[in-house]
Amino acid sequence: MTLLVTGATGFVMSVFARHWLETYPTEHLVALDLAPMDAAAQRYFAPVADRLTTIVADVTQPETWRPTLEAHTVTYVVHGASVTPISRGTVAEAKREPESEAPARIIDVNIMGTVAMLEWARSLRSLRRFVYVSSGSVYKHHGPDRPGEPLPEDGYVMPRRLYGIAKLASELIAERYGDMFGFSAASVRLSSVYGPMDRETGSRNFRHVPNRIAHKALGGDPVVRVNTMDGVGDYIQAEDVASGIAGLLKAPLLRFGTYNIAAGETTTVGDIASWAAERVPGFKAEVVPAAHADIVQDAALTGGMWGAYDISRILADTGWKPRPTREAFLAYMDWLSAETAR
């Protein structure tokens, strides 16, 4: 059996691709990405490279990749290729609006790239399941109605930026294609992801708080400057995302069209800094004015896309649970330490 993963040489999809190949040692994987493997990806995939085929092509141009795929009997598709134009982290970064730099490209890749992949996938007699990789960016900035509850997949959807708008549109398109052409299709909405292979690429240059703090601590800086200790996020490690997507692909039956993949709880900046100090004694977070901070967060943003996500659907349909957030973060620090020592 063969799995096709688009966007597979980037961040989250590379972690998923390697997880799949390690978990299912008799299966093959085709990685389709606009970018060829960089040095980090080549090292990362080396242990499983004998069962990996790479296609360097633009997902919006099917004539460049469909002929190559004809040689493979693809049974699963995970479509993760996208342009991720996010700008946050410091005051200076927040002033930049990356969506305005190439809005048509964002729409073309993130919507029409999905359509191109679905048009091809619907012709496959071997196809068992199509999973579209979406994002918590489809949600509102507030909700649910009863404070303290995790955010469910139903309702509270109101994207305001092109990235979230395109993600929501592609979710609906994938669901409709599945209905029209009789194949199993589902979307996964990821909360804030960090972890192995989180690096700058041509389609993504954004680092969530755990990544920033881990790099600060392991880079020898004794202090990370923050504007608040109380800013929160539902931070999920990429390796846990990988096992969650794999579980959805292999599940006998999916009862829903969308699934949150998240930690299911929020973690503060202060929490993450204290965990980093377990690996780097003496490291700490220091509160400074926002203009001088390495990490800027709004402590008032605790609901909607910024709060905890409900993960009961994926638990019920696959039995998947993420690792405890502290354990997952420390595992990432260990990976990052080993990688930087190479």
Rank of each mutant, 00 (worst) to 15 (best):
A49F: 13
A328R: 00
T228Y: 13
L127Y: 06
V131N: 03
R66T: 12
R125G: 08
T268L: 05
A46K: 14
G244H: 09
R323C: 04
M305E: 14
A71H: 15
Y194M: 13
Y24E: 11
V188H: 01
P147H: 10
S14P: 07
G257K: 15
T53M: 09
G233L: 11
I173D: 04
R129T: 03
D234N: 10
L315S: 09
T84S: 05
R279M: 04
F130V: 01
K95P: 01
T340C: 04
A104C: 02
W320F: 15
R279L: 11
G202I: 06
G7W: 02
V241T: 08
F181L: 02
M1H: 07
S100A: 14
T258A: 12
A242P: 02
A92R: 14
T258M: 15
G282T: 09
A290F: 04
D310W: 12
S312E: 10
G319H: 06
D230G: 11
E99Q: 09
W120I: 05
D221F: 09
D234M: 04
R204S: 10
L151A: 14
P25C: 14
A331H: 08
T258W: 01
R43S: 05
L151E: 00
A338T: 07
L151W: 01
R199N: 11
S312Q: 07
M117Q: 06
W65G: 11
A273C: 13
V83M: 12
N205P: 02
P103R: 05
T267V: 12
A174E: 06
V138Q: 04
A166K: 10
K167I: 03
G202T: 11
G80Y: 08
V224H: 03
E101D: 08
E239V: 05
R313Q: 10
H208S: 13
P98C: 02
G182Q: 04
H79C: 09
G307E: 00
E93R: 14
V287S: 07
E286R: 15
R313T: 10
I86W: 03
S100C: 08
W306G: 05
T54P: 02
T266S: 07
W275E: 00
G282K: 12
A46Y: 12
K95R: 13
E97Q: 15
R129Q: 04
M305W: 02
V133L: 04
I55K: 13
Q297A: 12
E175R: 09
Y163A: 10
L127F: 02
A71G: 08
P103E: 12
T60Y: 10
M1C: 04
T266D: 00
Y132G: 01
S191Q: 06
R18P: 05
S184F: 03
S82E: 11
Y139W: 15
V287P: 08
R225T: 05
Q61S: 10
A40P: 02
G282V: 14
P36Q: 13
L151R: 02
A300L: 08
A293W: 04
A214R: 09
E239M: 07
S187V: 03
P159F: 09
I295A: 13
W335G: 01
T325D: 00
G307R: 00
S184M: 06
T26A: 12
D179K: 15
S191H: 03
A116S: 13
E200H: 13
A35D: 12
G178K: 03
L190V: 03
E153C: 12
S170H: 07
G143M: 02
K140P: 02
D198Y: 05
W65I: 12
K250Q: 08
L330W: 11
V232T: 08
A285I: 05
G10D: 03
V77M: 03
S14G: 08
W120P: 05
A246R: 09
